[in-house]
Design a protein around this nucleic acid. Structure first.
Lengths: 189, 189
DNA sequence: CAATCTAGAGAACGATCGTTCTCGCTGTCA
DNA sequence: TGACAGCGAGAACGATCGTTCTCTAGATTG
């Protein structure tokens, strides 16, 4: 393995460790020392990879965005019928909520904590949510649903995430799915 | 005015100032010095009233809970028809989202920032959301709707709040209201 | 082998912040 | 009047944290 892959591997190890810590404790509660320990690198190497904590935060959100997108699209792509694809989103949520370390949407958490103080975080979160909204809109369109259905389904997904995080139950995905079914049926598709 | 009211007035002045700052910037970004300046009291008086920042945080969340509850119930009570009362919740959200300093649900923000590190905050947020859920459930029951409708309507409200906060638009309340109308109609009430 | 470069370990630095302490003033009561 | 309690202003303290620096040992290269 050459120097390039070593560096790439290290970068990813840092992002993975930071993501786990940020998500579990909140970004402000995690010092760079804790990231260093968890990633098993030196502080020097950490700062070589990410010149400031802000850069690391953005990189972590980027990783979360990719994992979310991959997870949702995989679940949706496994379904054939366009109408049923819409519901697959909530099935993905249900699986996610069931994970023992689930603590809500990392983007919503980051926005609540840093959105007001850190414009880059705010923008990254906005981009992530806008991307998801576009994705849902495209699924609605493919299913022949009205444009008004997209925002409604996305709101259900957002609400399920915060409700599941705070209440600590996995029910929210089931309720959101049932509501989505009703909305889809009401839209006549 | 006697000593009692002076103390009460001061306590409220501190909570009001802290609430505004916490909500606008995030709790961790606001030092006790900033609260002191905004409330116009001495640091000594501040710590006399709240022996630790944690106490102040809980008091601020308590005030937010009361304001939210009063705002929602006022809007709902102004409506006669039980079915329409359910929709009044989203009208309240629409007005709230329109306020220039809207920055999402303070409870969701606090939970994302401190929920993992501060059990009292987590519990207070959970209590607030559970209280709202019970309220919606009671409105659904009064309207003769099925029990399953309550969680769905609450999820729409939660989703509207986070969506409005992050996207920065007031549309979310309208979309949530339209979805609620469809769900209510689908429930046959 | 000698000179040089790199990187790890962690000390150090400077800023911030929660909390407490000191000082001096003001009003009170004997 | 004089002792004293209360309180405001803000300095001070100790901890934390983001970031940088020092020291050292091992690798590299000529």
């Amino acid at each position: 393995m050459n120097a390039k892959t070593t560096e790439e591997g290290r970068r990813q190890k840092i992002v993975d460790a930071a993501d786990e810590l940020f998500y579990a404790r909140g970004i402000g509660q995690v010092g760079m020392d804790a990231v260093r320990d968890a990633a098993g690198v030196s502080l020097r190497a950490l700062y070589n990879e990410f010149p400031a904590k802000d850069e690391l935060i953005i990189a972590v959100l980027g990783k979360r965005h990719r994992m979310w997108t991959e997870g949702v699209t995989a679940k949706v792509d496994a379904i054939r019928e366009p109408r049923a694809k819409l519901l697959a989103v909530y099935d993905y949520l249900a699986e996610w909520f069931d994970e023992s370390d689930f603590r809500g949407c990392g983007f919503i958490n980051a926005f609540g904590e840093l959105g007001a103080a850190n414009p880059r975080v705010a923008e990254t979160v906005r981009d992530h949510k806008a991307d998801f909204q576009r994705y849902v809109d495209s699924l609605v369109q493919a299913a022949g649903g009205p444009a008004s259905l997209g925002p409604q389904l996305a709101i259900l997904a957002e609400g399920a995430q915060t409700t599941a995080a705070i209440a600590g139950t996995t029910d929210a995905a089931r309720h959101a799915r049932a509501a989505a079914e009703a909305l889809i049926a009401a839209a006549g598709i």
